[in-house]
Design a protein around this nucleic acid. Structure first.
Lengths: 162, 162
DNA sequence: AAATAACCTAGTAATATACTAGGCTATCAA
DNA sequence: TTGATAGCCTAGTATATTACTAGGTTATTT
């Protein structure tokens, strides 16, 4: 279990798809300008997401990406593990005797923690975010044209905090 | 909130200290050989942990590091934030108008997720790991000489899994 | 006095992250 | 049928982070 900006890009992009899941595909170009990262890099991330079955590509004009499963079937853990390849959690993997024919206790403890973290992130699905009250407000306000512009919304005091 | 191998090194090292909290200081040299990372790198990590008040250095022979607070006052989140400086969660921080004078909804959603994750890792303290039944077994078996060698323990089938 | 181990700095190798540049293919609309 | 769109793919590269090496100083114990 690893968590970097790369993983965050993937998660936020998937949130975007989830919000517009019933409105048609979202283009990487839109996500690129929203998240402020290069289109080509996004393409690489989505290549991994697609191979993991988390998204579906739709080619041609009006195309883009949509979710590969229902929002409640896609967890944050799924997304992160798809793009952030897991770290070698023991650093002495392969060699069972990392020190004098024995094995570190702390490695075992880390595994326990790592599993707890994975379970936690697995329990959070994209469906939770669609239910967010802030989003409902936006959806109502923008309904018709939501597909193109609802990934953005006006700044509020709540949003400024990091 | 960021989680890399660097953070894992810090967490496992702190677990080590927590286990031996009542037995005297643990040397970085011991941790180095256990975790398989360089002594000097550990020194740099512990410099950050010390500045965060999470550990106390004890100089001279018989010295090493011990916890700076009680195990139940030190959370996994504390450790990770001390060594893995937090990422710029929005990528458009500073400029409030990341796109056409508006702000991305997904950034807001990420902040919510990030806070949930932080709350989760804040709820897990080093005290949990001391209570681990596996550790109790070791402590009983090694009691007197535990300080030096109890960071290691024999391989069991349970341990081989990653 | 000698050994230990924290504590500190500068420089560097290795790796991961993020981007650039180019191209190809499927699909839609004019 | 043609052009625009947008997915899809590869190779190369700039940047940042991670992890290490190699020196050193200082406090403490034996």
């Amino acid at each position: 279990m690893k968590l970097s900006t790369k993983g965050r890009y993937a998660v936020t992009a998937m949130m975007d798809l989830a919000i517009h899941d019933n409105e048609g595909p979202v283009t990487l170009s839109d996500i690129s300008s929203c998240q402020g990262i290069s289109l080509s890099y996004l393409e690489q991330l989505f290549s991994m997401l697609r191979k993991a079955g988390l998204v579906q590509g739709v080619r041609g004009p009006g195309g883009g990406y949509r979710l590969g499963k229902t929002p409640n079937q896609i967890s944050v853990a799924d997304i992160i593990t798809a793009v952030d390849e897991s770290i070698d959690s023991t650093n002495c993997k392969g060699q069972l005797d990392c020190n004098k024919g024995e094995r570190c206790l702390t490695h075992h403890l880390w595994n326990e923690l790592s599993e707890q973290l994975l379970a936690f992130l697995s329990s959070i699905t994209l469906a939770e975010f669609i239910k967010d009250p802030e989003i409902k407000k936006i959806s109502v306000r923008l309904d018709g044209t939501a597909h193109r512009i609802s990934t953005m919304f006006p700044v509020t005091s709540k949003m400024i905090m990091a």
